[in-house]
Amino acid sequence: MADVPASPSDPPDHRRRTRFLMIGAAVVVLAAVAIGLFIGSRPLPAPPTQAPAASPSPSPSVNERSALAGLRVVLDPGHNGGNAAAPAEMAQQVDNGRGGRKHCNTAGTSTAGGYPEHAFAWDVAQRTRDLLQAAGAEVTLTRDDDTGVGPCVDVRGRSAQEHDADVLVSLHADGADNPEVAGYFAIVSDPPLNDAQGQPTRELATALLDALGQAGFAPSSSYPGALSERPDLATLNLAERPAVLLELAEMRNPEEAAVAESPEGRQRYAQAVVDGLERWAADRG
Score class of each variant (00 low, 15 high):
M1F: 14
A2C: 11
A2P: 15
P5C: 12
S7W: 12
D13W: 12
R15H: 14
R17Y: 10
L21G: 13
A26M: 14
L30T: 14
A32M: 14
F38Q: 13
P45H: 11
P48H: 10
T49E: 15
A51P: 12
P56C: 13
P58G: 10
S59E: 15
S61Y: 13
A67P: 03
A67F: 02
D76Q: 11
P77E: 09
G82W: 05
A86I: 03
P87M: 07
A91M: 07
N96W: 02
R98E: 09
R101N: 10
N105T: 13
T106R: 09
T106C: 06
T111I: 07
H118C: 12
F120Q: 02
F120N: 00
A121K: 01
D123G: 06
V124K: 02
R127H: 08
R129D: 07
R129H: 06
A134V: 06
A135Y: 00
V139H: 03
L141A: 08
R143M: 05
D145K: 12
P151K: 09
P151I: 08
D154A: 13
V155E: 06
R158G: 04
S159P: 01
Q161D: 07
D164I: 03
A165W: 00
D166C: 07
V167H: 01
S170I: 02
A173E: 03
N178W: 08
Y184L: 08
A186P: 00
L193P: 00
D195N: 05
Q197E: 07
L208Y: 05
D210Y: 06
A211C: 07
P219W: 09
P219S: 12
S220K: 01
L233S: 01
L233A: 01
L236G: 01
A239G: 06
E247K: 09
A260L: 04
G265N: 04
Y269E: 04
A270W: 00
V274N: 02
G276M: 03
G276F: 00
E278N: 07
R279C: 02
A282H: 08
R284F: 04
